[in-house]
Write a protein that binds this DNA or RNA. Structure first.
Length: 888
RNA sequence: GCCGGGAUGGCGGAAUUGGUAGACGCAGCGGACUCAAAAUCCGCCGCCGCAAGGUGUGGGGGUUCGAGUCCCCCUCCCGGCACCA
């Protein structure tokens, strides 16, 4: 239970007394510091400065209501980097904005009968205040809000440019359809295959949509990953796998339909197994399936069944694989053998050809499918030393590295690549196929049948068809007073929005009511920060100064979609001549998620109730092991649901506002940095916050003791003279920790930087000889370093103490601290002594000792003699500066 | 299911990338101050053991003088899977 009093109970200031220390009052000093930064326009960024630029960008928030811990973590990381680089002499830009379109606003509208616009703008106002109270060094003059016409106008303008270039086009796409509400559902709104509001079984439905041709950039998006050394390997790997370049063979099974010759096209990466094909499978929507179903009611019913369920890939991959024969046979392209075509619920129409060849002997899914339906299995690959059996699937059946062709006629004995080449050549000769590169990446469908998004700037005219809105009529403004009711897009009922005249013929026409995917908004906002005030162009020369972003920071959950779309958008902007850079983000830091415990009770009937961890008390045994948990309010047990990301649905969020109000922004920021490595998940802990607050109180108290008791004596001594060992040791610790902290900062490992500041304060508190001039000098030097090292993490307290101690007017202007080699130097060092790899003691040697001298000292040591038990040393391993290991 | 990541004391985490495992902090225990409590300060704190010592980084195997770190196999957890953002 926390016992730190809230700000309101803190007594008045007592600065006047010479030996009195003011109580640490974060509310007061944080407000004063923030006011100082505001008034001095400290974070206003301009292009003209003759310093290297550093554009530090955090992913902008969705204005969901209030900040959550993930935001605090994200923006603290960004702010630490911004302030650090600023002190390093960079011209820093750190902007902020709002990813303001999206589904939650419509849900809130339905729940509260408030228009999404009002809800969104209210949230923005509140969250902006919160961000300001955290003291982030943001240039608010560049704020961008994606739901405002001055921003989304350029989405529309750019979409029209892409349309002209053929990079935007129309085709049909499959969506989740709720048959009761008669509306399209987001994947998130489909729960166990049913609509979240109606409970109706969701259907797949094909509707016309607009797509952006990201696949035209697949090659560059993949290849350019190599030009991004500042990106984490894991993100690059995920993107490369997502783009998914694969080499294979596209080929056809010829057949006759109503007397006419036809071809069933498929694609495979395993053409070497083509002689093992025993059937084909097509998607339910495949024309061949439709044809076969005409006179086959059972098949028609099965196809209907396949159309049920969600469109999510995870669902498709985990569902039970089902199929039904069509009764249609095609010819094997090489042998001419008859091969039956099946409809399979696992074949996707939207991917590849919507049809696959099946080789049950060498594909795991086909194997199980064949076993289930009693289809033939024909082995055509063999691995030496392994024997094929129909009983169970074996990993090696799909091994292309060690396998060779068997039972494959002229291809027998060929390895994977030789077989693929030979078979592709033969298919090509017959005009039935060829080698082909295929991509897993699909074009980006941007149409959303939703209200709260950027209108797609198109007009439907009965005479002229679909006509783009002319540039001079942009933006197509979204009405801001609609309240959605869950039954489709309310724009369809807005005559004032719908009614327009055709730009071509002038006749009465209808506006397109689909809006854009919100990923469009976030694909280029980082460019707009450079020129947010430009009303006549999407970007201008200032973008060339600031971009690309030097450091981008955001959640790992965006590793693929957002980051890939942004890279794509940048390349299109470049090809349209708007910018000159190829990649938007030079360095990327993907922060881990913020997690918390989940507690719940499951009543015998009714819904699960989740309880916030703050309302739950844990029971421990004598040794501190957890033995249970009870709800504080009624003392009855609750069940543990493990840990998970903070979310409304699991009721395990922690409100940062309470944290800021109770402890102050500096404590919140320090704890966020201290609790874990920025790239790892962070498990929330209330008690850890107390420790951070205690540390800042100690910093404060130490600062005031220094000012009141010691500082005046510090000038009497210069630190280049030889210091007494206790003082020299303290100084070594300060500079050693600074050195380590600078090393860690370069690795963006802020948790150990925070630790280093704690170690430095610990060292300063132990400096011997308080009252002497030498003590004062060592302590003042150390504290000066501490304040600068700590200032990016906890800027307010450091700002205040820096001025109080007279170190300068503004710590923002101070240079970054560097360790002094002279302070680190040591005459004698201690090495770890091991015998047979086990720790047995230590040896002291002169810092400059040679390998032989170290060996000698080690062998002569008492600890070594004891543990060698008189046996001769077989080998002595010396690791300079670390250890010596004697092997006997 | 597929792709990516993770697992270290009672807890969050550290370990200079193969060299003292547990830095720093939280919790706990003991003590000082106090009429008392809070705050603050000092000390102890992986596990087993009185100790000597042994043992220990999710589990199993391997490489090495030496493995949390490298290799192989397995388990569990987290993120993403194209309409949550």
């Amino acid at each position: 239970q926390s016992i730190i009093p809230p700000f309101t109970t803190i007594t008045t200031s007592i600065r006047e007394g010479p030996f009195m220390q003011e109580k640490y009052n974060p509310a007061e000093i944080e407000q004063a510091a923030q006011q100082h930064w505001d008034q001095s326009l400290a974070f206003r960024a301009t292009e003209s400065a003759g310093k290297p630029k550093y554009y530090c960008l955090s992913m902008f928030p969705y204005p969901s209501g209030k900040l959550h811990m993930g935001h605090v973590r994200n923006y603290t990381i960004g702010d630490v980097l911004s302030r650090y680089h600023r002190m390093r002499g960079y011209n820093v830009l750190q902007p902020m904005g709002w990813d303001a379109f999206g589904l939650p606003a419509e849900n809130a509208a339905m729940a509260n009968s408030v228009p999404p616009a009002k809800w969104t703008f209210d949230n923005i106002a509140y969250m902006k205040k919160q961000l300001q109270s955290l003291g982030f060094a943001i240039d608010w003059a560049r704020e961008v809000t994606t739901c405002k016409p001055d921003y989304y106008k350029w989405n529309q303008w750019f979409f029209l440019r892409m349309l002209e270039k053929g990079l935007a086009y129309q085709k049909t796409g499959v969506v989740n359809w709720d048959p009761i509400d008669q509306t399209v559902l987001a994947n998130e709104q489909v729960i166990d295959g049913r609509g979240w509001r109606t409970g109706a079984l969701v259907e797949k439905r094909e509707i016309p949509m607009y797509y952006l041709a990201i696949t035209q950039y697949a090659e560059e998006l993949l290849g350019a990953l190599d030009t991004l050394p500042g990106w984490p390997e894991r993100v690059k790997t995920m993107q490369a796998n997502w783009i998914g370049k694969s080499y294979g063979v596209r080929f056809a099974f010829p057949y006759e339909l109503d007397g006419k010759p036809e071809k069933l096209w498929v694609f495979t990466t395993r053409a070497d197994t083509i002689m093992g094909v025993t059937f084909c499978a097509v998607a339910a929507e495949h024309p061949l399936a439709t044809h076969a179903a005409k006179h086959n009611p059972k098949l028609a019913a099965f196809i209907e069944e396949c159309k049920q369920g969600s469109v999510m890939e995870a669902d498709m991959a985990t569902m039970e694989k089902k199929g039904m024969p069509t009764g249609i046979f095609v010819a094997h392209p090489l042998t001419g053998e008859k091969v039956e075509v099946w409809v399979g619920n696992y074949v996707l129409m939207g991917y590849g050809e919507g049809a696959v060849m099946a080789v049950p002997a060498h594909d795991e899914r086909d194997f199980h499918f064949a076993k289930q339906y009693g289809l033939p299995i024909k082995q055509v690959i063999s691995v030496p030393g392994q024997s094929f059996s129909l009983d169970a699937w074996q990993e090696w059946y799909a091994d292309k590295e060690h396998g060779v062709c068997v039972h494959s006629g002229k291809y027998d004995g060929l390895t994977y690549s030789d077989a693929v080449n030979a078979i592709a050549t033969d298919l090509s000769t017959k005009n039935l196929g060829d080698k082909q590169v295929v991509w897993r990446l699909r074009d980006w469908g941007i149409s959303r049948q939703r209200y709260w998004g950027c209108p797609i700037p198109l007009i439907h005219c009965e005479q002229c068809g679909t006509v783009p809105v002319p540039d001079d009529q942009l933006p197509v403004v979204l009405p801001e007073d609609c309240v959605p009711d869950g039954s489709g897009n309310p724009l369809n009922k807005r005559e004032d929005f719908l009614a327009c005249s055709c730009p071509k013929c002038g006749a009465k026409a209808r506006r397109e009511t689909d809006t854009m995917d919100t990923f469009v908004d976030s694909s280029w906002y980082y460019t707009r920060y450079a020129c947010a005030d430009n009303g006549t162009a999407m970007v201008d020369a200032r973008a060339e100064y600031w971009l690309p972003v030097d450091q981008y920071i955001g959640g790992i959950e965006h590793a693929i979609l957002h980051l890939l779309y942004s890279r794509f958008w940048t390349k299109v902007m470049r090809d349209l001549g708007l910018v000159k850079f190829d990649e938007p983000f030079k360095h990327l830091l993907t922060q881990g998620m913020v997690l918390n415990e989940i507690y719940f009770r499951k009543p015998e009937s009714g819904r699960i109730a989740y309880y916030n961890p703050a309302d739950v008390e844990l029971k421990h045994d004598d040794k501190g092991n957890r033995i249970g948990a009870v709800l504080k309010s009624d003392g009855q047990p609750v069940e543990s649901g493990g840990i998970g990301t903070m979310s409304k649905s699991k009721n395990n969020g922690v409100d940062p506002q309470a944290l800021i109000e109770q402890y102050g922004a500096d404590t919140a920021r320090f704890f966020m940095m201290f609790a874990s490595h920025p790239e790892q998940t962070l498990e929330w802990s209330d008690s850890g916050v107390d420790g951070s607050y205690r540390f800042l109180k100690r910093v404060w108290t130490f600062g005031w003791r220094l000012k009141n008791e010691w500082l005046s004596k510090a000038k009497a001594v210069t630190l280049d003279t030889k210091l007494e060992e206790g003082l020299a040791a303290a100084r070594r610790e300060v500079h050693g920790n600074l050195k380590q902290a600078n090393y860690d900062l370069a690795k963006l490992q802020f948790n150990t930087v925070a630790s280093a500041t704690m170690k430095i304060l610990n060292a300063l508190e132990r400096v011997p000889g308080a009252g002497s001039a030498a003590h004062a000098a060592v302590v003042s030097e150390g504290f000066n370093i501490l304040l600068r090292l700590l200032s990016p993490i906890t800027p307010h307290i450091c700002h205040d103490l820096w001025r109080e101690l007279g170190y300068g007017d503004d710590i923002l202007q101070a240079p970054w601290p560097e360790p002094l080699e002279a302070a680190l130097a040591q005459d004698e060092i201690e090495l770890v002594l091991q015998v047979n790899g086990k720790l047995r003691g230590a040896v002291k040697v002169p810092a400059a000792a040679s390998k032989e001298q170290i060996e000698h000292a080690a062998l002569a040591s008492e600890a070594a003699q004891k543990h060698m038990e008189g046996k001769p040393a077989k080998k002595v391993v010396v690791v300079p500066g670390r250890l010596v290991n004697i092997v006997v």
